[in-house]
């Protein structure tokens, strides 16, 4: 549908504000731990696309999710991962890009057996 605008060429003049070029070599990546809503929403990071997935596992997750009592109990081998809705099996050596993570991709993970504080999804 054509845009309703006073200016005829409006659509051609639009400057997309969150183009990947504006992030100084990084891409925006969203991360979400399912069934643990004490973290109110997915969280956002500017990461280089070449960052190994292992850095996410070893540094990012413990730093930002470690405060939750369930975190220490995660069985990492059993975790289910999706990137933009597609199932992935992480390879710590490979980059985010190798896992199909692009600009503004959403990574969700489910930790079997852990359903938040007293099973409340919190």
């Amino acid at each position: 549908m054509a845009v309703v605008a006073l200016e005829k060429d409006y659509a051609d003049k639009v400057e997309i504000r969150d183009r990947v070029e504006n992030f100084h070599g990084n891409i925006v990546v969203y991360l979400h731990w399912e069934e643990h809503l004490s973290f109110c929403s997915a969280v956002a990071f500017p990461f280089p696309p070449s960052m190994p997935f292992g850095a996410l596992l070893a540094e990012i997750l413990p730093t930002y999710y470690g405060a939750h009592p369930d975190f220490a109990a995660i069985d990492w081998a059993a975790v289910r991962w999706t990137v933009d809705g597609n199932d992935v099996t992480p390879d710590p050596e490979k980059s985010l890009a190798d896992h199909g993570v692009g600009h503004k991709s959403l990574i969700r993970f489910w930790t079997p057996g852990l359903h938040g504080y007293r099973g409340s999804f919190s």
Binding site: V3, V4, A5, Y10, A11, V14, E15, I16, R17, D18, N22, F23, H24, N26, V28, A44, P46
Partner: peptide, 17 residues
């Protein structure tokens, strides 16, 4: 109206920029 909202000034992204 994607033309309009693709210009959103999202505070989190602005911090990253």
């Amino acid at each position: 109206e994607p033309e309009k909202y693709s210009q959103s000034w999202l505070p989190v992204h602005q911090i990253f920029q």
